[in-house]
Amino acid sequence: MTSASPNPAATGGDGKAVPVPRGEERAWFDGAREGRVALTRCRACGAWSTPRVVCPRCWSQDVEVATASGRGEIYSYTVLHRAGRPGFEADVPYVVALVTLDEGPRVMTTIVGVAPAEVRIGCRVRAEFVTRGGVAFPVFTPEPA
């Protein structure tokens, strides 16, 4: 009998977990490696979503990977004063936020390039890309005023 976690996560050299995407989930991370925020767009109704094989608005299976603008707005945020996961001890305080992308989907991300105390709901942000343990993902930073 084998033992496998339902949520595998390798560990990067910095001790932080690295996601192990499966199937359609890979589009998000593969896009980030190329410097793109990759979403799913429905050919039937035009809705954008985080990676999926069935459109969550009209339930069409006619969907494609598409590149988003990489811009959005902070919908909410929290400043972590204690490490929320192993490996983040040296990062505190750090900002985890929900960003509503201009195409509609909302994602959890890290806000970088700004003092935590300066972060505000409604702040316009754009994507930057980080690679950890060979897996790339977007983080967001405030747009220049």
């Binding site: 339902p6 949520n7 996560a9 932080k16 977990a17 690295v18 996601p19 192990v20 995407p21 499966r22 989930e25 998000w28 985080t50 919908y75 909410s76 945020y77 929290t78 972590l80 204690r82 490490a83 929320g84 996961r85 490996g87 983040f88 990062d91 750090y94 985890v96 936020a97 929900l98 994602v107 959890m108 991300t109 890290t110 709901i121 980080v130 950890r132 897996v135 993902f137 983080v139």
Partner: peptide, 28 residues
């Protein structure tokens, strides 16, 4: 609870950070 593949990189504490995001928006 598993951590969402898309949340893993960001170091959010589960579940407190999710409630913190909710609280921050309610305050706003």
């Amino acid at each position: 609870s598993e951590v969402s593949t898309f949340e893993v990189p960001h170091g959010a504490a589960y579940p407190i950070s999710s409630f913190a995001l909710i609280a921050q928006r309610h305050m706003h």
